[in-house]
């Protein structure tokens, strides 16, 4: 960890100004400090936002929830309103990390988690995400946890968050305050970038931006599921995860949002897949067709080829469960 100047922000504007001047914002720090110890990230200045009043969950005028950026993952998962109205979010949070980490990791920080790519984590290896233009060793290397959708020749990393997958399925908005004091909201749908040839740029955040909240729209009557598939029973990153919000009316799928973890550089959503499902009577055959549509451009890297059938199988099972299909129906 290289030496850094440490400052505590007393107001969001302090943090924004600090960020504009090149400081890195630290909240829970569970990912940032992990990376700083390895000098994968080596900021010269840290601005600590933990004392800012961004730790509340409030109801919005629209009937949704405004989740302060500093709300710990544990609190968000345990919030009665979240458990009742947004169970997919609660489930996703609880599927992530450990009890200790969830107590520290924050809502805003979780959105900004960096990839777990082994080569990104090893500073002796080239990595376009860590050092733009240096190359990608994951391509041609061990790539079990890597992307099957949306990858580029520059980067095949995946986004490790569970929470962000649920946020995308819930069509949440990210509230951002900038150094000039302006505020904007960016839908999670638009918050992340695919790697293309700039994998070091992961989100729409710019210097001077501070995430202040994540806003959930008013809840809709729906079945919500989050299913995470991983290599051990707990405390492991997703190989594949599926978040589903499904509204059924008169035996048909009136509305559906699906988001996927473990497949791409960001939580993945494909509206064409949702369109294929909407208005249809649920059946495994339909779900299989939709999964094929989702995966039509999926490309394995060798070790991660299994994610293609695994995604299809998991997606079918999640939808079948959400739609109340019996086994084999």
């Amino acid at each position: 960890m290289r030496p850094f100047d440490y400052a505590r922000a007393e107001a969001v504007s302090d943090a924004a100004k600090g960020s504009a001047a090149g400081a890195t914002i630290i909240a829970g720090g569970t990912n940032l400090l992990d990376l700083m110890k390895l000098e994968v990230m080596a900021p010269e200045r840290l601005v600590d936002i933990n004392r800012l009043p961004l730790g509340e969950i409030e109801e919005t005028e629209e009937g949704g929830l405004k989740i302060g950026a500093l709300v710990p993952n544990a609190d968000l998962a345990a919030d009665q309103r979240v458990r009742r109205d947004y169970p997919v979010l609660s489930r996703a949070l609880l599927a992530g990390a450990s009890g200790q980490l969830r107590n520290k990791a924050t809502t805003g920080g979780n959105l900004c988690q960096r990839t777990r790519c082994y080569y990104f984590y090893d500073t002796s290896e080239p990595c376009n995400k860590r050092e733009p233009g240096s190359g990608c060793r994951a391509i041609g290397g061990f790539n079990r946890i890597h992307a099957i959708l949306g990858a580029s020749d520059a980067c095949i990393a995946t986004h490790p968050s569970d929470m962000a997958v649920a946020m995308r399925a819930l069509k949440a908005d990210v509230e951002i305050e900038s150094a000039d004091g302006s505020r904007r909201t960016v839908p999670v749908d638009d918050f992340y970038r695919l790697p293309h040839d700039t994998p070091h740029i992961e989100t729409e955040l710019e210097a001077g931006d501070v995430i202040t909240a994540v806003i959930l729209p008013a809840p809709v009557t729906s079945e919500q599921r989050y299913r995470k598939v991983r290599d051990r029973a707990s405390y492991a990153f997703a190989l594949v995860s599926v978040a589903a919000v499904v509204s059924l009316e008169e035996g048909r799928i009136a509305d559906v949002t699906l988001a996927f973890g473990g497949l791409a550089h960001c939580p993945w959503r494909d509206e064409a897949v949702e369109a294929r499902l909407k208005g249809q009577a649920p059946s495994r055959a339909l779900f299989a067709e939709a999964a094929d549509l989702l995966l039509k451009d999926a490309t394995g890297q060798g070790h991660n080829d299994f994610k293609i059938p695994l995604t299809k199988r998991t997606m079918i099972a999640v939808l079948a469960d959400a739609c109340g299909l019996e086994t084999g129906e």
Partner: peptide
């Protein structure tokens, strides 16, 4: 492990369990 991957450093801060390796003392 020094990276929040094992839990051996768990302490309670203001009553809550956290990984003490993944936070700065100055915070």
């Amino acid at each position: 492990c020094d990276h929040g991957q094992c839990g051996a450093c768990t302490v309670m801060v203001n009553g809550r369990r956290i990984n003490s390796c993944l936070t700065l003392a100055c915070m």
